[in-house]
Design a protein around this nucleic acid. Structure first.
Lengths: 202, 202
DNA sequence: CCTACCGATCGGTAGG
DNA sequence: CCTACCGATCGGTAGG
């Protein structure tokens, strides 16, 4: 039995393909303008067959939006923990991870930032809760930098919002084929974020 | 004839009401999820009657998106010309006007930033051209500040993008009922923008 | 400005 | 996983 792992692949693989097709179409056309027939065609299925893998159109969207927030939270937490144990280094790591994720997952993040309205109350609450958690993560980091360095932070909340705004914007224009290297881009945004705190470049 | 001005009001007033209803519903539900029946109901008309005032659903959207860009361009141009004739003062005026407009017209701007996909090629090109013009306006201002003050601007394009990103973000959360006064908010964003240029607060 | 209608398309389901 | 279908709703139009 050299291929025992294959036992579970068929269904899971199809499910993943459907999700990827949904990300692509939701990004290109928007959730409302995307038909399940379009999603099905993308993975060579008929509409009815989709229902062997998903519970409905909105489930597909909720899945994408919730998992993108989970990934973001995990990534930034990991980046912060891996950084040097100073408040500024941790903040820089968080900003860098935030920008990098938004560039590398531009489609998913863009969907996450534009289709909140299409979720029912239950799913919307779930996503909003995770977003609030993400915001608070940055807010705490900003406040720690201020406490540890004495930086003259004008408004910690706007400061955190500023970083979130840059990420959202990056996800709307970044393409891997662009002229700038991603490392350089991330570095630029980190410098801007540090400057905004009123600190000299490190 | 004490009400001669009324001669032209009837039709124009209805047209304006329809547009305002469309802004409200496009903002709340998104363009695709909004039906012309919903728009009609909002102004106490039947669907068919809308066509005495508009050419179709997309015309309504294109109108909103194009006029928001025209207003933005005019406002910022005016603000720049009214400012003290130093590059930094002009830049500060532009950033302040940008943020203020995005707060005061949050719904229209939010539509402008999220429904590009729903326009046909012709209208999309019109809007994108105006957006490019708007971006260039900020890019030139940043470069002038750098030239005049010797500021160490890391990347003028990203710098301009940063300001645009803040505006888009503000339009997604700002409510007039919020705790912060608009003047104070605008002031905060101006300070952040100046700091990003590597200049001390003025 | 309304009534009544058109063809098209949608999400979802039954039944196999 | 497919065929065939459902009711609902859509943008838009004719005709008055």
């Amino acid at each position: 039995m050299p291929r025992a792992t294959r036992l579970t692949t068929g269904g899971a693989r199809t499910r993943k393909s459907i999700r990827e097709a949904a990300v692509k179409l939701f990004y290109e056309q928007g959730y409302e303008a995307t038909s399940l027939r379009g999603v099905a065609a993308e993975v060579d299925l008929q509409v009815g067959s989709l229902y062997n893998h998903i519970n409905g159109k909105e489930d597909l969207l909720a899945d994408i939006m919730i998992s993108v927030m989970d990934e973001l939270l995990d990534s930034v937490h990991d980046a912060v923990e891996a950084a040097e144990p100073t408040a500024l280094a941790r903040y820089e790591a968080a900003v860098g991870c935030h920008i990098r994720y938004h560039a590398e997952h531009a489609q998913q993040v863009f969907i996450g930032n534009s289709e909140l309205r299409s979720l029912n109350e239950d799913n919307r609450t779930k996503v909003l809760t995770k977003r609030a958690e993400y915001e608070n993560l940055f807010l705490r980091l900003v406040k720690k930098v201020a406490a540890e360095t004495g930086a003259d932070v004008i408004d910690p909340k706007i400061q955190a919002y500023s970083v979130l705004a840059q990420g959202a914007h990056v996800s709307s224009w970044y393409r891997p084929s662009g002229p700038k290297s991603l490392d350089k881009l991330v570095g630029t945004y980190i410098k801007l974020a540090v400057r905004e705190l009123g600190l000299p470049a490190s």
